[in-house]
Design a protein around this nucleic acid. Structure first.
Lengths: 210, 210
DNA sequence: GTCTATAAGAAGATAGAC
DNA sequence: GTCTATCTTCTTATAGAC
């Protein structure tokens, strides 16, 4: 019995090829902007072939985001005291690590406006980035109820999450050969986030708002 | 001749109503995720009525983004020495001011992946946020050619622009009654951007990358 | 596992009545 | 300025041959 590199069914990587290509197209053209036809042409397959591997377009999306969404939810369900800058940094790193459990192009899909409602149905999780921002803002305000968050802290947290999200997302463009984040990378990105959270820039004027 | 509040043709605000509603829907569901049918139903009109006011769906989009894109391009075409943090702050404020020339919901459209290629054709401007990031990264690296930008500066600038973009975009959610940015608001947002640009967080490891 | 062929509907867009 | 009706193309998805 000699060693054979490809045993007998090496072509069943089609499923993975589909997921990989779908992630790339969704990231580039958006979920709604990518049709099954686009995807099948890019793969050199027919539409029908895709429907052999997946039951629907949404099914492809669901499989793409399942892992990272579950991982992030796991991190969010832990107990976190986010009132200190250090703890917030660790929290952000944990989230980034959870996000790294998926193909890197999938990250771009998280903010696709046409994807959010679909995530709700399948995995029961609304606006990942929004939830993160609210969580961090609660830490900044030192409150336990999202409703008690100070608006100025919320915009600040939204900006901070935006920095982290774009950094993680831009990583694949700037460092195409980098497959996963190193610890240094994570430190760098979470550094951007905490920089915004802890910035001594003037907070927006609160007086003029009701 | 007495003063009459509504002279005689007050219903020609339909065009503006369309633009307003389109901006809202595009921001919420994305450009590709919003159909002419969705838009007409939201407006209580028929599709044909929309096509009386605009020649195409893309025409609506073009009119929405024309002003801010021209304004931002105007700022970008100026001479800027972005090697100092102060100058970068002023640059960012100028860009934000230019962005404020449009309906606030239009801001969300700028990052719609299905919109970017359409902007290219109509206004000849690719990836507004990417261009901003490159410009700021050039300042950080102290170079005049985008090709000479250091990767670590580019990711940092991408994160910084992300912070500013999300702050500007999140503003309308956190402060719904706020129509335009005050000077204090602009200072706050540009503060988030410069916080990332000037953060002393560890830059990503450069060694492992080619 | 992949194909051809096709259904059923929604998309963007137009013609012409009122 | 808005309507009804229609056209064409594209969409997701299925049936059945190979």
């Amino acid at each position: 019995m000699t060693i054979e590199a490809e045993p007998k069914a090496p072509r069943t990587d089609t499923r993975k090829r589909i997921l990989k290509t779908a992630a790339s197209l969704f990231a580039t053209h958006g979920y709604a902007g990518t049709s099954i036809r686009d995807l099948s042409q890019e793969l050199g397959l027919t539409k029908a072939a895709l429907y052999y591997h997946f039951t629907s377009k949404e099914d492809i999306l669901a499989e793409l985001i399942e892992q990272p969404v579950l991982a992030i939810r796991g991190v969010m369900e832990q107990e976190w005291d986010l009132t200190s800058s250090e703890q917030r940094g660790l929290f952000v790193e944990a989230v980034l690590r959870a996000m790294s459990t998926c193909d890197r192009e999938v990250v771009a899909v998280f903010k696709d406006p046409t994807v959010a409602p679909l995530i709700d149905q399948s995995v029961a999780m609304t606006g990942v980035t929004t939830q993160l921002a609210v969580r961090l803002a609660m830490g900044l305000s030192g409150v336990d109820d999202p409703a008690d968050v100070e608006p100025r802290h919320l915009v600040r947290a939204i900006a901070a999450v935006g920095a982290g999200y774009e950094a993680a997302n831009g990583w694949r463009v700037v460092y195409p050969e980098c497959e996963t984040f190193s610890d240094m990378d994570l430190k760098a990105i979470s550094g951007y986030v905490t920089a915004v959270l802890d910035a001594e820039s003037p907070d927006p004027e609160v007086e003029a708002r009701s």
